[in-house]
Design a protein around this nucleic acid. Structure first.
Lengths: 225, 225
DNA sequence: AGAAAGCATCTTGTATGCAATATCATCGCT
DNA sequence: AGCGATGATATTGCATACAAGATGCTTTCT
């Protein structure tokens, strides 16, 4: 018996969630080896649920499996990061377009409030708070498409790049840029302007990817120089 | 010992692939109970790799897990099917747009050849062949975006609805419609017309979803009537 | 006779054990 | 001294064993 009577949906899912969180938070850096016995010890379970969790994480793309050689936290080349951001851009832009037409009145209100909170955080120079509000704003738009399949896909992709973009607001001027882009997106959505919402969200994601490159040069796409 | 020394990448992945294939082919109907011991017996392995396979399939969305009650082949309500097709439409349209700009010359040639093969199959009234060519054509366009992340996402979604669209060409007139839509898409891609390629692919997917409804009324979206 | 409770059986969830493969260090050779 | 081979160690992959929960049936009471 393993102490926990039933955390939620079985130990494997619990372990999966906790490892996923640690990866997203950057506690487990890309490339980190995920030893089964170590993890089993850390979570006070046997190897079986850990293995099942790692398999799930591999399917999600958060870890990579090398045959008979164990699991590693997924790492990405700059080119792969570009591709991830491109895919996220396509998906979030689609979400924004649908959100422009489908947002309920309470959701529209909340969108405006979140954007206002972002403005306050920006004016206060509170980087952490702006990052948190940014996350919530994007989540609100994504959820606003009212299509569970799209929502899951988009959030899944965002989770995979989460650890690579934690530093995107390190340069204070990026916050102002981000806020300006958010303004264009939010106004378009509230005006039910599907074309603008789509276009602005796509360019916003491109800008976010470039911001990540500027802050973390090791993830920048090598330019022909 | 289990006879096979190394099918490919471990028994769990092998079992996962085979079950996924059977689901996509409709051999395992939506809602079918997936008993671990039965599957283990069928594939001549123990329950361990079967469980890992089922967990992976659950993460992919091909099966659903009910806590302590086992796995079922995922089934979808008509509304969920609509949402899936909407998501696929967004993704494939994005792929088509990128393909219009990124296709290499050999890829462009192959796209034209595939479309020509579809015309031959249509003229011959060969439904099976048209369905096969249709699959290849879409795969070529998806792969043509040259973005592994987008490709994987799109193919993953397509796999999840595969069993629900196997009958989409049962009405012969749908083949002619499909071919006409393909013509618009292929011509736009070859002309590097990103806007048209995107728009036509989206409407093509909507039409495909409607065709599925017409052929299989049990999956149709209930209309207000 | 119908319904509820209790019991037997089955299935899943987790832990442990064993075999196979990869990793690493040492040793030998050129 | 550098490089390759060989054996020891560690880790993964799979199988089996055991426990907890779910399913279904029988039994019993009203």
């Amino acid at each position: 018996m393993t102490a926990a009577p039933r955390g939620r949906g079985g130990l494997a899912d619990e372990v999966c969630r906790r490892i996923a969180d640690e990866i997203a938070l950057g506690l487990l850096a890309p490339g980190t080896r995920l030893d089964e016995v170590t993890l089993a010890g850390r979570f006070a379970v046997s190897r079986t649920p850990v293995r099942e969790a790692l398999k799930q994480l591999a399917t999600m793309g958060l870890v990579v499996y090398r045959r008979n050689r164990g699991a590693l936290v997924a790492s990405m080349t700059p080119a792969e990061l570009d591709q991830m951001f491109e895919a996220i851009g396509e998906l979030e832009a689609a979400c924004a377009r649908h959100a422009a037409l489908r947002l309920t009145e309470p959701e529209r209100q909340r969108l405006g409030e979140l954007h206002a909170q972002g403005r306050l955080a920006m004016q206060a120079g509170d980087v952490e708070r702006y990052a948190a509000v940014n996350l919530e704003l994007h989540a609100a738009i994504i959820a606003g498409c009212h299509n569970p399949a799209l929502i899951e896909l988009t959030n899944g992709l965002r989770e995979r790049v989460a650890s690579f973009r934690r530093t995107q607001f390190r340069h204070i001027e990026r916050i102002a840029e981000s806020y300006a882009e958010h303004t264009a997106i939010v106004e378009a959505i509230l005006a039910r302007d599907v074309v603008t919402a789509y276009r602005e969200m796509r360019s916003h994601l491109l800008a976010a990817r470039n911001a990540t490159s500027r802050v973390a040069p090791q993830w920048a796409t090598p330019q022909s120089k």
